[in-house]
Simulated scan of single mutants.
Amino acid sequence: MRNPHDIIIKPVISEKTTDLMADSKYTFIVDNKANKVEIANAVEKIFNVTVERVNTLKVKGKNRRMGRFIGKTPTRKKAIVTLKEGDKIEIIEGL
């Protein structure tokens, strides 16, 4: 079994995600190979909460230029985790 800290990379903090926190929905950047069950188990172990639902989406990388050189940002996977009513993740709430 994989380490939960290898699955959950970092939380996503933006206006949209902070609005979702009012509905007990938290957004994380996760490992590209992680599935919904692994993500739910990792969030439950790291933050000691109960996960009801996990929605995932892939964010395709964009082309970027540095002068005449063309590069690409990496493709990422985001997970929107819905917690049981009443549960909160305190680390993210304080930001």
Rank of each mutant, 00 (worst) to 15 (best):
E52C: 04
P11A: 05
P4M: 00
P4C: 02
E85V: 11
L95I: 12
T56P: 06
P74R: 07
M66T: 12
L95G: 02
A34V: 10
L95A: 04
I9N: 01
A42V: 06
K10S: 06
V51D: 04
D23I: 02
R64E: 11
I91H: 11
K25R: 11
E38M: 10
R65H: 08
V81I: 10
D23M: 03
I39F: 03
R53K: 15
K58I: 15
N41R: 08
I70K: 14
R64H: 02
I39G: 11
P11L: 07
L83P: 03
I29E: 15
V81F: 01
I80A: 10
K16I: 01
I80P: 00
D6R: 12
A22D: 12
L20K: 12
R53I: 07
K62L: 07
T50N: 14
E93G: 02
I46C: 03
N35D: 14
N63V: 14
N32R: 12
N48Q: 10
Y26G: 05
G67W: 09
I13A: 01
A34F: 04
G94A: 14
N32M: 12
K25A: 06
P74D: 09
L57A: 10
V59L: 12
S14M: 08
S14D: 09
D6W: 04
I92M: 05
L95F: 13
S24W: 03
R53Q: 11
R65K: 14
D19L: 11
K10L: 03
V49F: 06
H5E: 13
